Amino acid sequence: MNHSRRDFLHKFALSSLALPILPSFATEHTRWLRTQPQGPVLRVALLGLGGYAKRVADAMNACQRAKITGLISGTPSKLQTWGELYHVAEKNRYTYADIDDLKNNPDIDAVYVLTPNALHHEHVIRAAKAGKHVICEKPMAVGVREGKEMVAACASAGVKLLIGYRMRFEPNTLDVVRRRMEGTLGPINFFQGQCGFKIGDPNQWRLDKQLAGGGALMDIGIYAINGARYMVGEDPIWVTAQETKTDFNKFKDGVDETIQFQLGFPSGAVASCLSTYAMNFLDRFYLNGEKGFAELWPATGYGPIKGKTNTGTLTFPHIAHQTIQMDEMARILLDGAVPTLAVDGQVGLQDLQIIEAIYQACQTGRRQDIDFS
């Protein structure tokens, strides 16, 4: 690992703070990651105990600045099982009906909302009114109006709202960002983002318009949208898009199967992206500049992320993304740290504004200007 990359992680990727390191990564190449500044621990309640929440919970076992101190679920048996597994006191286990009671619990600093998309709005606002910082999974809501209300509610309550954009903390991703920021790739011309997989169970909530707010674009295409923004280093000003649907039984009205979309940026750079629930082996980012290129493939999966540039292979070791994310979010919430790539509610709201413009472009067949007001 060269010194420039090492310095970058210390200076940019982790807000001048070193990453936590799992024992299995204790090698010569990663030993420098062990240095961990001391500080208070973020006490987190997980709201919604589904499959992704389990991944977050397991990854948090390796965190040094964040730990699980609360659980919120509509399923009593989950509260019992998870409480025993993650050593959460019974007094810190809540049902959805009890969210408002969090205001009386000093053992919890923040609530991580991990429920289906359509429930984020209610859960974020209730957690904020209870005086807790909020971390919300992406997409932050099913529409712009709800997103704005969530941002406003957190501001009114005097708490912070962060969105679970784990890739904005991932070391290989941040090394590409560093290269772009330093100008080693030259002016950026083009970004390509391919995000997709074949979705399974046709009865799952991700294929329910009322719970998901859409289809593949809301779930997986958002990675290409968000990735285009941090890879290019600009926010898009227009979009064109085309929708393709081959399975009308699985993908009902309002649930997109495949969307191709193109973004235009103020500098003149353009992006070409694909979002789909119908094809596997699509997890690739490619960034083209006048002096070089960068590629991440896989780019957004749970890892390991692999990458290369015109000067060689990216070699940062894999650490569970959620481990890095939660330790870094602890620094944001408790220390006031400023991350290289923002993960606040405004970033999540802007993604929703882009998503709405993409859907509008699909419906009208016309280019849409993107309104961030």
Rank of each mutant, 00 (worst) to 15 (best):
C195P: 07
C195Q: 13
C195H: 15
G196S: 14
F197L: 12
F197E: 07
I199H: 05
I199G: 00
I199V: 08
D201R: 00
P202D: 01
N203H: 08
N203C: 03
Q204Y: 01
L207H: 00
L207E: 02
L207P: 00
K209Y: 02
Q210N: 08
L211S: 05
A212Q: 04
A212F: 00
A212E: 03
A212P: 05
A212T: 03
G214F: 03
G215L: 00
A216K: 00
L217G: 00
M218I: 10
M218H: 07
M218K: 07
M218A: 11
D219P: 04
I220M: 08
I220T: 02
Y223K: 14
A224S: 14
I225Q: 05
I225H: 01
I225L: 12
I225T: 11
I225G: 01
I225F: 08
N226D: 15
G227E: 02
G227S: 11
Y230D: 11
Y230C: 10
V232A: 06
E234T: 09
E234K: 09
D235G: 12
P236R: 06
P236K: 07
W238H: 14
W238P: 11
V239R: 03
V239K: 00
T240C: 09
T240G: 07
A241K: 02
Q242F: 15
Q242G: 15
T244K: 12
T244M: 14
T246Y: 07
F251A: 01
K252V: 09
K252T: 12
G254A: 08
G254S: 08
V255E: 01
D256Y: 03
E257F: 05
E257R: 00
E257L: 06
T258S: 09
T258G: 01
F261Q: 04
F261T: 00
Q262S: 01
L263K: 04
L263G: 04
G264I: 01
G264H: 01
F265H: 03
F265M: 07
P266Y: 13
P266Q: 10
G268A: 15
A269M: 13
A269H: 10
A269V: 05
S272H: 11
C273V: 10
L274Y: 15
Y277F: 10
Y277H: 04
Y277N: 02
N280A: 12
F281Y: 13
F281I: 11
L282W: 05
L282S: 03
D283M: 04
R284I: 05
R284H: 09
R284P: 04
R284E: 14
F285I: 03
N288M: 08
N288Y: 06
N288R: 11
E290T: 15
E290M: 13
E290W: 10
E290Q: 13
K291Y: 13
K291R: 14
A294F: 03
E295W: 03
L296W: 10
W297S: 09
P298R: 08
P298K: 09
P298T: 05
P298F: 07
A299D: 08
T300W: 08
T300G: 05
T300V: 07
G301A: 14
G301D: 12
G301Y: 09
G301L: 11
Y302H: 12
Y302D: 12
Y302G: 13
Y302N: 14
P304W: 13
I305C: 05
K306Y: 12
G307C: 06
T309I: 10
T309K: 09
N310L: 12
N310S: 15
T311L: 13
G312M: 07
G312Q: 08
T313Q: 06
